[in-house]
Write a protein that binds this DNA or RNA. Sequence first.
DNA 1: CGCTCTATTGATAAACCTCAAATACAGTGG
DNA 2: CCACTGTATTTGAGGTTTATCAATAGAGCG
Lengths: 224, 224
Amino acid sequence: MGKCLYQHNLKALLSDQYEDLVQQGIRKNLIPMDILFREGEAAANSYLVTKGCLKLSKLNAQGGEVIIRYITPGDMAAAPAVLRNGDYPVTAQALKFTEVIVWDKEGFIALIQKNPKIAMDLLMTVYDRLEDLQTRYLELSSEQAEQRIAKMMISLMKHAGQEHSSGVHIDIPLSRQNIADHIGASMYTVSRTLSTWEKSGWLKSSRKQITITNPGALKALGKT
Amino acid sequence: MGKCLYQHNLKALLSDQYEDLVQQGIRKNLIPMDILFREGEAAANSYLVTKGCLKLSKLNAQGGEVIIRYITPGDMAAAPAVLRNGDYPVTAQALKFTEVIVWDKEGFIALIQKNPKIAMDLLMTVYDRLEDLQTRYLELSSEQAEQRIAKMMISLMKHAGQEHSSGVHIDIPLSRQNIADHIGASMYTVSRTLSTWEKSGWLKSSRKQITITNPGALKALGKT
DNA sequence: CGCTCTATTGATAAACCTCAAATACAGTGG
DNA sequence: CCACTGTATTTGAGGTTTATCAATAGAGCG
């Protein structure tokens, strides 16, 4: 499918030249809850996540968090903001032990000049995110909370799912509040929904842990 | 402000080389309601709007329209989808008499190879849209309908406002349904809200026509 | 074991959608 | 110029989803 062509190229490129990149960039380790950069700060560095998970979020006028995206290994963060000399539009926080590669502005521009193809790959990565967000905007405006939660679970299975004999475990520590903040619902609605699903035997969950035992049921819900 | 640097460059570039571009691309005129391309079709052409207005929308599962964005003169449509060899992610429809410049895939790639800077400018344009949509996603998930309508009106004033002695006229023929589909509300809620504002003397509206007479009041509402 | 953070669950309220019906308006053809 | 027709808008009534509030229970940690 053409859809993932360029994104995969970007990931492959970054992966092939891993040694080079590490020499040009700097490895950095984060512990859970560490904040990598904050919304509104001048964008100084570009990041590539190699292990763990980042949460990209904005604050609304009431001080509540809205989670724009979760960043898993192979994804970049902040690159276009750096290229444009702008501010970070979101806050990036580690949800678990996370490793990133850091380039400062000069290093990242040098990297692109050395590999001009990266500019096009980056364009396609940003475009992927735009398309994804367009779809989620549609869902937020026309589907109800249960469907949006189901779709989020399915997406998480793809990006952070670990096959297990008991089901697919979501390898990101997500609270009910984290889920709510991502799909535009309240923590209470999320809690009630997951409780119902658990009673139906579709998933198992404990504090910040989710294992999906009946993916088909959730996919069917998402298509409703 | 750094924020608009690249977008403006793209517009300027396209404008400076207008004659060149017209020779490479083809001028095309649309009448109101004409559909330029449809969601799901293979992306064949890139467009630059030079006059009029396009509505970019997706269909939800119930067949309802969700309007992702309005495209006004100087903005592009479909470029990244063409570069990636993908499908159009949205449907583009003219809301008034509209002129676009068309490049087929080969022509557009040739254009970029002749002016490599365009790739970076395009990246920044796509990034602008991503940031805009991130902000609207936040608003949709945490603000109520009245505030979202107010913010849409303010945004329209900037992009399609015509100063007039009686106020700022929105130079796009928007139905209540069009407004509702953009901000994720029902036509009825939009109608009630505009009626209230009209009674307060903040705007005047007739069928598909809006003139804002008290921008300050709407801006204050948006900041609530 | 107590402290803190997270999750659950019930009761209530608010925002908003849906449905229905009336009204206003633009364009058309006689 | 006017009636006619189809579309757009308005407004009320009622229902639904979901947020909010409050109270409780549970999990992890020192």
